[in-house]
Deep mutational scan, measured.
Amino acid sequence: TIDEIIKALEQAVKDNKPIQVGNYTVTSADEAEKLAKKLKKEY
């Protein structure tokens, strides 16, 4: 679900690790936030 994706992003940001979500690779908190907002609009 979208919530699980967002939790995974938040965890990756805390661990400061890049995370791959679908076609996106998120490497920073800023990118994670942008991706989360984008995904919320889509779903």
Rank of each mutant, 00 (worst) to 15 (best):
T1W: 15
T1E: 12
D3S: 09
D3W: 15
D3M: 15
D3L: 14
E4H: 07
E4L: 10
E4Q: 12
E4A: 09
E4N: 09
E4C: 13
I5L: 10
I5G: 00
I5H: 01
I5R: 00
I6H: 01
I6E: 00
I6Q: 01
K7S: 10
K7D: 06
K7A: 14
A8K: 09
A8E: 06
A8D: 04
A8Q: 10
L9H: 00
L9Y: 01
L9G: 02
L9F: 01
E10W: 13
E10R: 06
E10Q: 10
E10K: 04
Q11P: 01
A12D: 00
A12Y: 15
A12G: 06
A12T: 04
A12W: 14
A12I: 09
V13F: 08
K14F: 14
D15Q: 07
D15L: 11
D15G: 05
N16P: 04
K17T: 12
K17D: 01
K17L: 13
K17W: 15
P18R: 02
P18N: 04
I19E: 00
I19A: 08
Q20G: 03
Q20S: 11
V21R: 00
V21F: 08
V21Q: 00
V21N: 02
G22C: 11
G22W: 09
G22K: 00
G22P: 02
G22A: 05
G22F: 09
N23F: 07
N23L: 08
N23T: 08
N23Y: 08
Y24E: 06
Y24Q: 06
Y24K: 04
T25Y: 15
T25W: 15
V26S: 02
T27G: 09
S28T: 14
S28V: 04
A29P: 06
A29M: 07
D30M: 11
D30C: 10
D30K: 13
E31H: 03
E31K: 00
E31P: 00
E31M: 11
E31L: 02
E31F: 04
A32E: 00
A32R: 00
E33C: 08
E33K: 10
K34C: 15
K34F: 11
L35I: 06
L35N: 01
L35F: 01
L35Q: 01
L35S: 00
A36K: 04
A36V: 15
K37C: 14
K38P: 03
K38G: 03
L39D: 02
K40A: 09
K40C: 15
K40G: 06
K41P: 03
K41H: 14
E42S: 05
Y43A: 12
Y43K: 08
